[in-house]
Structure formats: structure tokens, C-alpha cells
Computed example of a mutant assay.
Amino acid sequence: MEADPRRLRLLAIVLVSGAALVVALALALGSGGFDAWLIAELRAPRVAAAAGVGALLALAGLSMQVLLRNPLADPYVLGTSGGAACGALLALMIGASLTLGAAAGALLAGVALLVIARRALAASDDATARLILAGAMLAALFGAAVSLLLTVTPDQRLRGAIFWLVGDLSGAELGGWCLAGAALFIVALTARHRSIDRLLLGSEAAALLGEPVRRLRLELLVAASLAAGLAVACAGAIGFVGLVVPQVLRLAGVQRTRWLAWMSAVGGGALLVAADLVARLAVQPMELPVGAVMALIGAPLFIVFLSRGAR
């Protein structure tokens, strides 16, 4: 059941305030204090990339959970991450742009899934199982390809490739694009919030209410694939954001898409900015892979909220 408006407003205030605090700390810490030049030239682009990537992953996870009606769905369950990783490694081996290679791989994975599972988008809840299986097989296929590519990657590039595969924001250059993409995604989800809420009732119920179920599922799949592809192209393979953030908000009582859309984006951005801050400062002067740090933060956080939600 939807939380009462007062609780939602309080949660929104806490979420926005916490996100603002995390961003302020990330801009200042590790950059020699509040040095204007360092913040503008070094810290701000990385913080923007982390916020944009986190927002995109959270929104993609929200869309996948609606599409599959499965609380355990996230952007990587359908093979987008594996496709992007394959494209990035191939680009690294031939000396091409890592970002373009990852984007091309993610796009290939999305197109392959659409071709394989086009009938799974029909107005039937049983089709979601076929969609999950198709994505799992694509993920396994791309995972095997990544393993093979790593075995033939030159030694001087191997460490960088592995570091990127578990998430790396040190060289992120698409922060502005990620933030813009997240903003467009929020607008799209908010504009279709009634249709998406009806889809959560089940395909048959949504169809009886006059919703074009097949088209709506296709829109959600394409949007989530594009969002995940852009995020992976910017920062590598970072998990748990799309799984944890929407579910934590639901356990807190937020159920409607018009609230979940922007709250997921703010929460995902803040969570990844915080994970990146820990990755930079934990073992200075070394830097940890942000994807591993995100898993260490996200998994316990999800377990705590899940246990409280169950009670």
C-alpha cells in the first residue's frame, strides 16, 4: 500500500538532503579541500559521472522490475553488461575507443534480445519467464566471450581491462550525457506513470484497462537497455544499484511510479557517488574498483532493509 503523503514528503526531504551532503563531501574530500580549480576541473566531472551512472542504473533497474514483475531484476540480468564488456575489450585490443566499444556492445546485446524474445513481449505474464531465460543465455554467452578475450589480452593492458570490468570512474568522460539521459528517463517514466502502475497489476488486468501492453513492454525494455548501455560505456560494469535502490524505496513505502522515478534517480546517484568516495579514500594512494565497493555497500544495505521490511 502507498505510504501516506506526509511520510512521502519526509522521505523525499531526507533523500534529497542526504544526496546533497554526499555530493558536497565527494567534491571536497580528496581534492585538497575546497580548492575551486581542483573541484571544477577534477572532482566535478567525476562526481557528475558517478551521479549520472547511478541514476541511469537505478532507473533501468526500476524499469526491468516493472517489465518482468520480478523484484530481483536489474539492468544486467538481460545481458547488457556482458555485451558492453565484450565491446569494450575488443576496442581495447584493437586500440579503438573504449567508450564507443562498450556502447556498441550494449546496443548489440539489446538488439539480440529484442530479436530472440520478440514474442515474449506479448500481453501475457507467462512471457516474462522466457524473457528472463533469453537474457540469462545472452549473459552467459557474453560472459564466455569476455573470458576468452581476457586470455588473449596483452599483459600491459590486462590489469586495466579487469579493473574496468568491475567498475571504474577514474576516466569517465560522459557525465553530462549520463545526467541528461537520466533526466529524459525520469520525464518518460513520469509521463507514463499511470500505464506503468497498471502494468504492475498484471498484463491481463492492464489490457482490460485499455493499456497497450506489448508496446509498453517494448518501450520499457528499449529504455532500460539504452540507459544501462550508456552507464556501462561511461563507468564499466557496476552492479547492485539497479537492484537495491528501487527495492529499498518500495520497502520504505513508495509504490507509485511518479514518486519512484525521481527518487530512484536521486538515490542511485547518491549511492554511487558515496561508493566512489569510499573507493578513492579507503586505501590511499591506491584506488579500489568502484563496482566492488558498490557490492560491499549494496548487499548488506539490501539485506538490512529486507529484514526490516519483512517484520
Rank of each mutant, 00 (worst) to 15 (best):
A60W: 06
A85T: 06
V304C: 05
G32I: 08
L8K: 13
L121D: 10
Q247M: 12
L100P: 03
M64Y: 15
C86Y: 09
A161R: 03
L133G: 10
E219W: 12
L199Q: 01
I132P: 04
A191V: 13
C86G: 08
A91G: 11
A40K: 07
L78V: 15
L189W: 02
G79F: 12
R159D: 15
V22Q: 01
V77H: 03
L15A: 08
V47G: 07
L277V: 01
T153S: 06
L56T: 03
T190D: 02
R43W: 05
S81P: 00
L68G: 04
Q284I: 10
A123F: 07
L216F: 06
T153F: 08
L226C: 14
F34T: 08
G32W: 06
A19H: 01
L133D: 09
C178V: 02
V248K: 00
L68Y: 07
P154K: 02
M137F: 14
D126E: 13
P75C: 06
A172Y: 06
L27R: 06
L29P: 02
I162R: 10
S63P: 01
L165N: 10
L209Y: 12
V47T: 11
A3V: 08
L216A: 13
G82T: 01
A48E: 09
D4G: 13
A103D: 05
S170F: 07
A145N: 00
A127P: 00
A274Y: 00
A270G: 04
L42D: 12
A270Q: 05
A275P: 06
C86H: 05
R43L: 06
A91P: 08
A96M: 14
P154C: 07
V241F: 10
G176V: 01
L62D: 09
P289E: 09
L184D: 01
V22K: 00
L114Q: 12
A292D: 10
A205K: 06
L150K: 10
L184P: 01
I186N: 03
L201K: 03
A231E: 11
G253I: 06
M286G: 12
L29D: 03
L301Q: 01
L272K: 00
L38I: 01
R118H: 15
V77D: 01
L272N: 05
L27N: 09
R118G: 13
A299N: 05
G181Y: 05
R280C: 11
A49M: 04
I94D: 08
A233R: 09
M263L: 15
R280N: 04
L114G: 15
S170H: 10
M137R: 02
A19V: 02
L260R: 04
G30T: 12
A134Q: 08
L230W: 06
P45N: 06
S63A: 15
L249A: 03
E41N: 10
R198C: 13
A270E: 02
I116L: 15
A224N: 05
P300D: 12
C234A: 15
F185H: 02
L301Y: 09
A3L: 14
C234Q: 00
G242S: 11
G83M: 13
L288C: 11
L281I: 04
F34W: 14
A295D: 11
R7H: 13
F240G: 10
S264I: 04
I196N: 09
A24I: 07
L100T: 13
Q284K: 10
A299R: 04
A237M: 15
E287C: 07
R215D: 12
A235T: 12
L38Y: 02
A136S: 15
S147G: 15
G242H: 13
